[in-house]
């Protein structure tokens, strides 16, 4: 029981830390990578909340597709490809 509690607190703390770093880090590319990390941690949180359906959706959409969209936008920003 107390191991569960410790894991939940650790997971919540890492969620908040990765969210904070996403907003505060100066490099925008790093911010997007941290956001993808945040999405994967959210997947773990949904699993802990006994919501496997949301965990599946979050892993595929929140971390995968949103990350791809954001990285593509950064590619345009850095001029590596035609907008």
């Amino acid at each position: 029981m107390s191991a569960d509690l410790a894991f939940d607190l650790l997971l919540a703390a890492s969620l908040l830390w990765s969210a904070w770093r996403t907003l505060a880090t100066p490099d925008i590319f790093r911010a997007v990578i941290l956001f993808i990390v945040f999405g994967l941690l959210m997947t773990l949180a949904w699993a802990r909340l006994s919501a496997p359906d949301i965990a599946l959706a979050e892993a595929a959409i929140g971390a995968g597709l949103t990350g791809a969209l954001l990285l593509d936008a950064i590619g345009v920003l850095r001029g590596r490809k035609q907008p």
């Binding site: 496997p52 359906d53 965990a55 599946l56 959706a57 595929a60 959409i61 995968g64 597709l65």
Partner: peptide
């Protein structure tokens, strides 16, 4: 667990 949303994603 599963369904249309996850499969579509």
């Amino acid at each position: 667990p599963g369904g249309a949303f996850q499969a579509g994603a």
